[in-house]
């Protein structure tokens, strides 16, 4: 609705707009907009209270400057260096860091705990006993590992059964044929499995062919 009204009124509003605009622009000093009534009231009230307010604001007040000269800032308490020294003396077991270099990366990507609760294991320990068991299964038995690392024997048995370290094969040259690398037991399983399947398929095909030829 508003849009329609303003559209209807537009020709009246913009009547002779060019001339009127030029008249305003060509004035040498633009007319100042009237101040708000409440502002005018405030100004009048100040003028009545302090008649020479303009002069006072412009001139320098030496009295105020003198007061500023009497302001001083002082501090109390012990200096920062003394506090640091006192803290070092209080607790010699926790010395403040001296080295500002960047921290070196941890071996396993995380900080290892200094104390491990009974029944738990760190990754470093796990790799240690898995490797030793693989090297010498008769010597490093689950019971011995469980006793040494304070673990449950059933847990150790499960870990040793399900986790193995890898054997690493590096081909001598780039052209030499790749040797299958992997956990010993698994490799055998993989090979046996793949061979078995292919042979079974071939046999079944042959059987079928034989049947066909027989019929």
């Amino acid at each position: 609705m508003g849009a329609i009204v303003s559209r209807a009124l537009r020709p009246i509003k913009s009547f002779n707009i060019e001339n009127r605009a030029h008249r305003v622009i060509s004035k040498e000093k633009p007319q100042v907009a009237p101040s708000y009534p409440s502002t005018v009231q405030d100004l009048q009230r100040v003028q009545e209270a302090v008649p020479d307010i303009d002069k006072k604001l412009e001139s320098k007040d030496s009295h105020l400057d003198d007061r500023l000269k009497n302001v001083y800032v002082t501090s109390k308490g012990t200096p920062e260096d003394d506090i640091t020294r006192k803290k070092q003396d209080e607790n010699p077991n926790r010395p403040l860091p001296q080295d500002r270099n960047a921290l070196e990366d941890f071996d396993f990507g995380f900080k290892e705990p200094e104390r491990v609760p009974y029944g738990r294991t760190t990754l470093r320990q796990a790799i240690e006993y898995i490797t030793s068991h693989q090297m010498n299964p008769e010597e490093a038995t689950a019971a011995k590992i469980a006793y040494e690392y304070k673990l449950k024997e059933s847990d150790v048995e499960n870990i040793l059964k399900h986790f193995k370290t890898y054997e690493v094969y590096v081909p001598e040259t780039k052209d030499s044929k790749a040797v299958i690398a992997g956990p010993t037991k698994n490799r055998r399983k993989l090979m046996e499995q793949s061979v078995g399947k292919i042979e079974a398929k071939k046999d079944s095909n042959l059987d079928k062919q034989n049947e066909k030829s027989a019929s």
Binding site: F108, I127, H162, Y166, P183, L190
Partner: peptide, 19 residues
């Protein structure tokens, strides 16, 4: 490195997972 078979992988460690 190429790892064969199922693996248990940690941030900087690999173990074979016998599954």
């Amino acid at each position: 490195l190429t790892v064969l078979g199922p693996m248990a992988i940690f941030p900087r460690t690999v173990l074979s997972w016998q599954i």
